[in-house]
C-alpha cells in the first residue's frame, strides 16, 4: 500500500513493461543480483548476503556499475 503525494498513475507509469532480465554474479566473494550493461559491465540491483557489513561496501551499492577486464 502506497502512502505518497505523487499520484498513483504517475508512480505506476510503465509497470506493464517487461523488467530487464537480471543475473546473479559473485564478485570478490560478494553475491549480487545484477543487470547486464554491455560486455564488461553490470548494474547492481541488490546484494544477497547475510553479512550486514557487505551492504556498506561502497562500490556495490544498488545502481552502481561493476566492471571487469
Amino acid at each position: 500500500m502506497l502512502y505518497t503525494v505523487v499520484p498513483l498513475e504517475d508512480v505506476l507509469e510503465g509497470i506493464d513493461q517487461e523488467p530487464t532480465p537480471t543475473f546473479e554474479l559473485t564478485i570478490g566473494g560478494l553475491l549480487m543480483e545484477v543487470e547486464p550493461q554491455g560486455d564488461f559491465a553490470a548494474k547492481v540491483v541488490r546484494i544477497i548476503s547475510s553479512n550486514p557489513q557487505d551492504y556498506l561496501v561502497e562500490n556495490c551499492q544498488p545502481g552502481s556499475i561493476v566492471r571487469w577486464t
Binding site: 554474479l25 564478485i27 570478490g28 562500490n59
Partner: peptide, 20 residues
C-alpha cells in the same frame, strides 16, 4: 551470450574495483 560472459567472469574474471 550475456549469460555466458557473466559465467566466464564468475570463473575467470578480474574486477577492476575490488568490493572491499
Amino acid at each position: 551470450e550475456e549469460e555466458v560472459t557473466l559465467q566466464t567472469i564468475k570463473e575467470l574474471g578480474q574486477v577492476e574495483l575490488p568490493p572491499t
